[in-house]
Amino acid sequence: MTSLAGGYGPTQVLYDVSVEVGEGEIVGLLGRNGMGKTTTISTMFGLLAPSSGSISFDGAQIAGHRPFQISRRGLSLVPEGRQVFPLLTVQQNLEATVRASVSGDRRWTVGTVFELFPQLADRRQNLGVHLSGGEQQMLAIGRALVMNPRLLVLDEATEGLAPTVRAAIFAVLRILKEQGQSILIVDAYLQKLLTLTDRNVVIEKGRTVWSGTTEDLIASPGVADRYLGVGV
């Protein structure tokens, strides 16, 4: 997406955000809280309308399209706060979204997600509302995977999770990386995140202020210091 601007009704949050994710690439979307990361993602998925700028996916313009049209092109979302469907069982949460990829591939099914997260398989008949935070996060990831996306977008992949659960989630993300899954990820645990990402985009106050490879980011500690308030 290029020079994206937008926000919530009259409240402009994004001014000039550009993010690019290549095939098979993992890109970190960095920035402090309230800088527009979630707004960027919501706009990408058509949940918010951009006021200007362009979003292209696979060569097609998708800005202004409706969310279901965008997602059917091969984008899937692990939303902030997990947002599993509370009135559906674990199994139904997955069955509700399962679909073949744009190219007809069905690598991820309810079954293969259960292999990836055996803990979920044990709770398949439980309602979403009864899961622990970690299980909800696993389910949210599984729910996005069964859509067999070309681009998986994770907004706050491990927020509020215990360290062991966080490590388990990162282990799964690493498996996805090895399989060549393209991912755009937001996560507060920078050091862990940078072991995963190929490139990173830093946004501040609704503008892209830095983008480059993970090596470059680590090599220029001033960037993290200045925009993220942490050392690398």
Binding site: L47, F68, S71, S76, P79, Q83, L87, L88, T97, M147
Partner: peptide, 17 residues
């Protein structure tokens, strides 16, 4: 399932196709 998902996550449901 979509109907039940929609009772709590109307906006988000579109992002799941």
């Amino acid at each position: 399932m979509w109907i039940r998902a929609g009772t709590t996550h109307r906006e988000l449901l579109g992002a799941f196709g």
